[in-house]
Design a protein around this nucleic acid. Structure first.
Length: 109
DNA sequence: CTCTTGACTGAGG
DNA sequence: GCCTCAGCCAAGA
């Protein structure tokens, strides 16, 4: 195990846990905050290991506010249900009022 | 080591 | 606004 690589994953998990309720962010936003703006895909990849952890992966979507990662959850609409439970309106895997619920770690932190 | 895949993004048409 | 292409980095075969 290389601590350096694991560190990147840990950072992703850490930031994801910092996402407030009723808010969402994008993979690129997290990646940029970590100083790896070009590793947005790695953020999503890291989320594969979020299972079993306290990481609210359902609050992390792509830059369009589209629930691209919902296929990694159990049901077909579980991710959407979770977001709606937090007051986020989601229609057809697309977050509504994205600008209102969007949370940018680079700006909010 | 090389190739493929992937929960992404930005630029160009 | 949509679609397509290229770049990006890490893990697995």
């Amino acid at each position: 195990m290389k601590p350096e690589t694991l560190n990147f994953f840990d950072k992703v998990y850490a930031v994801a846990k910092l996402i407030p309720h009723g808010r969402v962010t994008s993979y690129g936003a997290i990646a940029k905050y970590l100083g790896a703006a070009k590793s947005a895909r790695m953020v999503g990849y890291a989320m594969n290991g979020s299972g079993g952890k306290d990481v609210p992966a359902h609050r992390v979507v792509n830059r369009k506010g589209l629930l691209t990662g919902k296929h990694h959850f159990d049901g077909t609409n579980l991710m959407q249900q979770l977001l709606e439970s937090e007051g986020i309106e989601v229609i057809d895997n697309q977050i509504q009022n994205l600008e209102t619920v969007y949370w940018d770690p680079s700006k909010e932190l």
